[in-house]
Design a binder for these strands. Sequence first.
RNA 1: GGAGAGAUGGCCGAGUUGGCUGAAGGCACUCGCCUGCUAAGCGAGUAAGUGGUGAAAGCUGCUUCGAGGGUUCGAAUCCCUCUCUCUCCGCCA
Length: 424
Amino acid sequence: MLDIKLLRQHNDIIKKALADRGEDFDIKTLQVIDEKHRSILSELEALRYRKNKASEQVAQMKKKGENADDIVSEMKSVSDKIKILNDELSDSDATIHQILLNLPNIPHGSVPIGKDSSQNPIVKKVGSIPRVDFEQKPHWDLGEKLNIFDFERAAKITGARFPLYIGAGAKLERALINYMLDLHTTQHGYTEVLPPFMVNRLSMTNTGQLPKFKEDLFKIDGWDYFMIPTAEVPVTNIHQDEILDEDALPILYTAYTPCFRSEAGSYGKDTRGLIRQHQFNKVELVKFTRPESSYEELEKLLNDAEAVLKNLELPYQVVTLCTGDLGFSAAKTYDIEVWMPGQHVYREISSCSNFEDFQARRANIRFKEKGKKGTKLVHTLNGSGLAVGRTLAALLENFQQPDGSVVIPKVLRPYMNGMDKIQP
RNA sequence: GGAGAGAUGGCCGAGUUGGCUGAAGGCACUCGCCUGCUAAGCGAGUAAGUGGUGAAAGCUGCUUCGAGGGUUCGAAUCCCUCUCUCUCCGCCA
């Protein structure tokens, strides 16, 4: 959510941000309602002042045993007026709030302006793509041969786009989760959390999934609960409505959760393999920081996610999302894309974003500076560290051997009971 | 699912015969004093949000005692609904 003061004082900034994002949004309505809102408010405050003074007076008169009937009857009508204005005020307040909830964040100054993902500049490429003298297969072919996952049976259990891992596949998925969590907690300073996998409407609204993107979510029938599309939602909401101690910042959490996405509008896209599922596993990194250090922390967050790929010896590239491709809540986002030799493409495997105070304002997450009055909003950040299913797919494609076996990267072997290869 | 108790400031915790209670007391924190050091002690200060005024310190209006509604001139206090927490019973991984 944006600060309404920004609308009053610098609406040109908002207009530019919306234009850069390619959004068609009418700010004028908001301005008109806001003006009316403030005029009602000042009238209402004057009446409330009178009411407060009068009831003080009544209290004193009654104490002395005097008759206060005149004031009482006058205040009756004032109270009625207050009630009417109060209703008007809460109407306009609700309207303003709804509009603000639908306004996206303002891109950071360093974000390149562009229309869509084709205009995301590449920041760097890491790791070399080895030359091999055999045809590398996509992971779905490999997985079938190795008998480590089974989408047909998963479809029988649930439907399309659900994974069923078997044997070494299930173990490898679990090994990746454990390896990532261990790396982030022991090497990068994150605290592990295991949050609820369903959240309520407010939590979804706080991080920005609602109200605009409800069609992307799975909702629980009969409850106002939603399956989480990412651990970002429950983990960011840990500190919902809190005033944090400045000494506690930055706060770093890592969490493994399954993620549930309806993938509405992606029918026919990435239908094969592990790339686009309704349920997938992810290890997430979440930070709460002071405003002045959030961009420094974004770079560190990116490094922490990259470390996983480096240690797994997977080649990847990093891109900066341009304004047209930037997510609703984000001010700046780096995507990490891993090389998939079986498909000859780079695939997104992590997305690292700084939301600045956009989520913090919605979720009311603040911190207090010692010796200073008032509070400030924290900045929130998060990134995948990493998407586990896609990592497993990348491992299969990158480490496949001509005989169809797949070599397990060294760092994962302790998590696989020493297994160094998956054989067909 | 049944019965009961509760939700107050950064934290703990008073206040429920309605009226200087935005809220006692404690802890924590800040500043000052004191004390070889530390600890203790003494004094002062410290909720948030939002508006006005001011260069600033400050002064000042309004709102907020889980959420929403009601009674009343006036509600942390009375009534209703909801949410959450805790205890006991039942059921259960």
